[in-house]
């Protein structure tokens, strides 16, 4: 509007080069300004800590003798560390069993909600989702009470049966006990992801299916599940990361079952105890870096495979 006195042709003739140059220059700046808040947070919260952890992992600080550069010695030690691999194996088993169980249950719950055949559907939805709103620490404490072989529900149940049927704190059952807590916590969260994905399926598809004579099972297999693929991939990745990062639940239950849950029960607990009980910050950083890399690789594989299926 300010250039209203100039004719269009004149303006175009007079100004193209400088304006163009100026626009690109300013455009670059504007772009950076838009991403700046994100970049600042990314650098401060992600790049710097990771860089520092990598830096730490190349040193060894001793109670006596001080700090010195050791190159990759911590990594070499870690690769041969049976404690680390046993903790890794444990979360891997946990992942392979708990994640599918939880996701299938979440899927069933989401499909049930979506079927519109439930009475009090909104109550059902909030009831399943509610545990997610309970902080993980509180959840572990609650379940710690429930699992108590003397004081808790488990104790009362065993008394009722007059046997020691339930033993949640024995080495045989501890992973199941923790899996139960984690499932309880995150079932609702995953259900919501699935349910949201189901809500965006166009109604025409269902209409067409019913015109073609498809029953509800057929609709689930041919429409709902394919529509959920993306959501399932996302939920799987979240769950994989969550499994590798397992910490709160076992760490809190450790006071109740100290001999069953050791200091290297999960990789995160191992890293925690290395740094906070043993002052082995450098080795702990090494554990964190290696676990980060492994988690990223596995999450990436799942994502690539998941999207490929989606595109098929």
């Amino acid at each position: 509007m300010s250039s209203g006195t100039l004719t269009g042709a004149k303006a175009a003739r007079l100004e193209p080069t400088p304006r163009k140059r100026r626009r690109t220059g300013r455009g670059k700046q504007t772009g950076w300004m838009f991403v700046a808040p994100f970049m600042v947070v990314l650098i401060l919260m992600l790049i710097v800590p990771i860089g520092y952890a990598i830096y730490l992992s190349l040193f060894r600080d001793q109670l006596i003798g001080g700090n010195h550069f050791v190159g990759l010695a911590n990594y070499i030690q870690l690769l041969q560390d049976s404690k680390f691999w046993s903790s890794f194996g444990r979360v891997l088993i946990f992942l392979v069993i708990q994640v599918p169980v939880m996701l299938v249950l979440a899927l069933v719950a989401a499909l049930a909600l979506d079927s519109a055949r439930l009475h009090a559907a909104s109550f059902f939805r909030i009831a399943i989702f509610l545990p997610y709103a309970v902080p993980g620490v509180v959840a572990a404490l609650i379940w710690g009470f429930i699992y108590g072989p003397q004081f808790g529900l488990t104790g009362s149940f065993n008394d009722l049966l007059g046997s020691d049927l339930l033993k949640p704190f024995t080495s045989t059952w501890i992973l199941t006990s923790i899996g139960n807590i984690v499932t309880w916590e995150f079932l609702g969260y995953n259900m919501i992801i699935f349910f949201a994905a189901l809500r965006v399926v166009p109604a025409e598809l269902y209409e067409a299916a019913s015109l073609d004579g498809a029953g509800s099972l057929r609709t689930i297999i041919s429409i709902k599940l394919p529509a959920l693929r993306g959501a399932i991939v996302i939920a799987s990745i979240f769950s994989i990361i969550g499994s590798f990062q397992l910490f709160n639940e076992p760490n809190l239950l450790k006071t109740l079952a100290p001999n069953v849950i050791g200091t290297f029960f999960t990789p995160n607990m191992y890293a925690y105890n290395l740094s906070f009980a043993g002052q082995q910050f450098n080795y702990s950083a090494t554990v964190a870096i290696v676990m980060g890399v492994i988690t990223a690789v596995i999450a990436y594989i799942v994502q690539v495979r998941g999207t490929r299926q989606e595109n098929r």
């Binding site: 009470f145 108590g148 072989p149 003397q150 004081f151 808790g152 104790g155 006071t255 109740l256 079952a257 100290p258 001999n259």
Partner: peptide, 13 residues
Amino acid sequence: AQTPGFTDDWYKQ
């Protein structure tokens, strides 16, 4: 009794 100290179970016993 393999009950960890200072837990509710322990006090109960």
